[in-house]
Design a protein around this nucleic acid. Sequence first.
DNA 1: GTGACTGTAG
DNA 2: CTACAGTCAC
Lengths: 268, 268
Amino acid sequence: MRLRICTWNVNSVRLRVEQVARFVREQAPDVLCLQEIKCREGEFPVNAFAEMGLPHVRIAGQKGWHGVAIASRLPIEDAPRLDVCREGHARCVGGTVAGVEVHNFYIPAGGDTPDREPNPKFDHKLDFYEKLTAELAKRNPKAPLAVVGDLNVAPGEHDVWNHRYMSKVVSHTPAEVEAFGKLVASLGFIDLPRAQTPEPEKVFSWWSYRAADFRASNRGLRLDHILVTPGLKEAAFRLGSAASRVHDDVRAWERPSDHAPVTADLVL
Amino acid sequence: MRLRICTWNVNSVRLRVEQVARFVREQAPDVLCLQEIKCREGEFPVNAFAEMGLPHVRIAGQKGWHGVAIASRLPIEDAPRLDVCREGHARCVGGTVAGVEVHNFYIPAGGDTPDREPNPKFDHKLDFYEKLTAELAKRNPKAPLAVVGDLNVAPGEHDVWNHRYMSKVVSHTPAEVEAFGKLVASLGFIDLPRAQTPEPEKVFSWWSYRAADFRASNRGLRLDHILVTPGLKEAAFRLGSAASRVHDDVRAWERPSDHAPVTADLVL
DNA sequence: GTGACTGTAG
DNA sequence: CTACAGTCAC
């Protein structure tokens, strides 16, 4: 059985239901993890998702900002909470689908200044990474578990359009890359989109709205991730190589999110 | 030669270009008078209007609020200015098309309280009517002249959904109805949409956004007008009766303005 | 309800 | 550039 997991920062789910429906029609994800839904639980368009074939939904919402959700073709069972946000934001939702524990995160962007002291947002971001890494380290690497979402870090030098320039910009600074590395090391996570497309090929999942033509300048970052435990390695590579990709065509649709969806297939 | 004059409060011309293009395709107005364009002159989508077949444009705009424009199939010559707004708002634009002087107004709505003393907006509205009436009285009734626009008064008891109720509400109070009457009397104006559809039949051109189904409740007002001088009487009635109507189907389109377009045909 | 303003955030 | 909040006007 194929389980297609998708992560997508939709940047307002209510403003983007049409695009989500089209993506679901074209790519048929089984588990769709959304970030920046920007609404309360009760404002989430559950009916539209049911019509898309994703009737099972877990939502962590709040007014106006942040907010994450998992919409699934199959029933969603409980999963241990991994909520490590010290500000109490709606940045994490988890569930178990077909025996796979899925944790969906919207990690803080971190503001402009890459320095914990003067910038509490950057401090919050690194604190989030530290707490999450500590929580994950308690878990069993052989258990089937996925950490997905907008992790707001581009970890590798080929995950950014310009490594030297971006090393001074929040999302790719050494402190963040290190924090991301420790998270990956906690359970020996496998980075599926990167396994599919090895370096030095560039892979991006986000392009700023500010560029007139995002394909022309292609100043992208890989901020959206699907990480799985060694317990899912076989399932992820059963077809020989990993089956994972960024759907960058979606970024070119009408009124797009600034993030593209990222998918990975597991064969269970 | 037929000259189809249209008045339409579009409630943001930039947000409504698609609807305007569709209306122009379907109804082919020769002179399109817009109110509440809500943009500066330089922000008006002149290219889109040229593509609609309305390449000649006169615009009086300002940032964010009010703003009026005339877009025409035929060239627009100058017309004497009739700008009587004491607040300096962009509420009037005039021009001469095919020998007909057209003056396009967005008269102030007038606030909530129908009393000049405590409500300066209501005072401004009546002041606008008084100054405009005085200016028009200087002109020759036999000259071909049209006063069109969102005049923000429903003059007749069959121009409102409930005469008794609306008599206490700004847009249909005795003071406004009287001001409108004096304007009409200044040059003996002919009210073309009303000439086409005599009382007691109700005619509305505006329905609040607040009603869920504007057709069901039908709490409309006739705020948008096409008034012509006796000098255009023959041209207006050359086909036997006046050819004028409210395009209320447009109010039911997707993302509509709260006003419907009103047209009148002259045969010159 | 809808749109445009300012301000904040990404 | 885009989307939220809160404010104002219609």
